[in-house]
């Protein structure tokens, strides 16, 4: 029966191709977004040095600022997660440690993204 299956059906999903260029492309797309968002964030961060809590919060509560901060946080957590994944793949060759670190990276940056989104949402909606 198995010989009636096309060889593709057996080969697909195996080998080095697995996910194709999705990871590579996602890293470039997030990089392109960060090309614009990082300068905005850097200027924002410097302008908020020495600003008290109420005023810093009020600044981020502005819809445009909250939107850009959301865009920045989501792009940068995505980009960082993809990058750290490759670093672990390249340098950690002990199987259990590699799996543990990959999980740690995924969980840490998912949590960072979620916490940031909740924080920005709370600031924007309770201003």
């Amino acid at each position: 029966m198995s010989r009636l299956r096309h060889p593709w059906a057996v080969a697909r999903g195996l080998g080095s191709a697995k996910e194709g260029v999705a990871h590579w492309w996602a890293q470039r797309v997030s990089a392109a977004a960060l090309l614009f968002l990082v300068p905005w964030f850097v200027i924002t961060a410097v302008s908020l040095v020495g600003v008290d809590h109420a005023n810093a919060r009020a600044f981020l509560a502005e819809p445009l600022n909250a939107t850009l901060m959301l865009a920045f946080v989501l792009s940068v957590t995505w980009h960082a997660r993809l990058g750290l994944q490759v670093v672990v793949e390249d340098y950690i060759h002990t199987p259990w440690l590699e799996v543990a670190l990959q999980l740690l990276v995924k969980f840490a940056y998912a949590l960072a993204a979620l916490a940031s989104v909740v924080a920005i949402g709370r600031i924007a909606f309770t201003a």
């Binding site: 809590h53 810093a56 919060r57 981020l60 901060m69 946080v73 940068v76 957590t77 960082a80 990058g83 750290l84 670093v87 840490a108 940056y109 949590l111 960072a112 993204a113 916490a115 940031s116 909740v118 924080a119 920005i120 709370r122 600031i123």
Partner: peptide
């Protein structure tokens, strides 16, 4: 890698602000 650590500080800043 250093920037990725900075992302965690960014999350802390936003959570503290909120």
């Amino acid at each position: 890698i250093v920037n990725a650590l900075g992302v965690l500080v960014l999350a802390w800043w936003l959570v503290a602000l909120a």
